[in-house]
Design a binder for these strands. Structure first.
Lengths: 239, 239
DNA sequence: GTCTATATTTAGATAGAC
DNA sequence: GTCTATCTAAATATAGAC
């Protein structure tokens, strides 16, 4: 008599733990306890931790990817219809909006999932890289394809960099570190979705356009690497 | 007879492990083994894992912060002397360059340290937040102060957001996930420091200027939150 | 400062009863 | 499907010898 929601309970518990404590900080014991079942039942459904991790990630990514692709397609179709280049802000909004909305969805666990993505993004480990390659690289490529139609002048080797800048900026915006509130002395509301999208999209479009300008083939001033003090190697930075 | 470099050996080993495996993935055992000493000696020098984590972070951050502050001061002084507003690209370069250079310094362990910062940036846990607050928030505030002089028109509640966008973009650029190479089919070189700075600085300055335009007090078109489909709540995104 | 030894807890994984 | 019981390895931590 299968309890119909055992899998869901496991995935919900694991999602929360992976998001908060990371891969290594999450154990079958903690997952089982949070799900209210035994350890071995958890392992019965997901034999290894990697399997559990992937299952947690895969559960939502399909929906998300579908949503993002639909929005990207719409932007692209509009451009085709109007016989104009893809609208940059539209493409960036299609890229950014599904994630930001998810990140502020406290009810259905979307916020947990978004934090898991935030952790995954800069995780160099193989369990994270494998999941990233499998589930997110295809959409990344499609996004870049559409973005290229929005900024056709941009050098093709600049686009992947700009895409990663955009990913990082978005992740930073949604990551649950409480930093915006702290650094703004309480003035900025980390849950104001409208505000985040309203700032992030223009920020990114300004960035893409600027890079497109300076890397355009046959651009007037290829001042791409305007050296200010690039040779003063000495240290690093913070954040 | 104190082996004069025991502390250094511990910190080097811990730095590498924390960077690659994160906080929970790093144990005294692994650190001790990598450093070639016993577990208890490691614990003699750093009684708790938190103490070790903070020590690893603190070791380099002082140098880094000093470097960044010096560059920021220089940019600010130039502006004062010329009686002009702070140069935006100059300020952003002062912000970005120390970290990017550090991240590509394979010899002295700087790359490991940069990866640790990348992991720390989106880590919601208290051990990470405490370190971030203590060592990086002061410089963040100083950086924002200088940036505000570069874009005085920008709404003051937009600046912290833009600062975090910039942090995220930079972190994404240096994080050792191998993604640029993958997504560019080998065309982009993740170790090309000149290229990274040469793209990142214009990208960020374009972003800051765009946001400054649309949030300027009394701006002609406060189209800040141009709604494209912001109400179509439904899903999330990837990265 | 540095080690061995040991205590205690928790980890992932299996075997087998129901 | 679900549990209890148990194994082995690894974790943090402490005590005490040199």
């Amino acid at each position: 008599m299968e309890k119909p929601d055992t899998l869901k309970r496991i995935l919900d518990a694991a999602e929360q733990l992976f998001a908060r404590e990371g891969y290594h900080g999450t154990s079958f014991r903690k997952v089982a306890e949070a799900a209210g079942i035994s350890v071995s039942l958890t392992q019965y459904h997901f034999p290894t931790k990697d399997a559990l991790y992937e299952a947690v990630f895969a559960r939502r990514i399909l929906v998300i990817n579908h949503d993002r692709l639909a929005k990207l397609d719409k932007v692209e179709a509009e451009a085709r219809q109007l016989k104009r280049p893809v609208d940059l802000e539209g493409a960036l909004q299609a890229f950014v909006e599904p994630t930001v909305l998810l990140a502020r969805d406290k009810k259905s666990g979307g916020a947990q999932y978004a934090q898991l993505i935030a952790q995954l993004t800069n995780d160099p480990n193989e369990y994270a890289r494998a999941v990233s390659r499998k589930y997110t690289d295809p959409i990344a490529r499609q996004t870049m394809r559409v973005l290229r139609e929005a900024v056709p002048e941009m050098d093709s080797t600049a686009l992947p960099w700009c895409y990663l800048f955009a990913v990082g900026a978005m992740i930073s915006a949604i990551s649950a570190t409480g930093r915006v509130k702290l650094l703004s002395d309480g003035e900025c509301d980390p849950d104001d979705v409208q505000r985040i999208v309203g700032l992030l999209v223009p920020f990114l479009s300004g960035g893409f356009e600027r890079v497109a300008e300076i890397t355009a083939r046959g651009s007037k001033t290829p001042k791409a690497a305007k050296p200010r003090s690039t040779k003063e190697v000495s240290g690093g930075k913070t954040l």
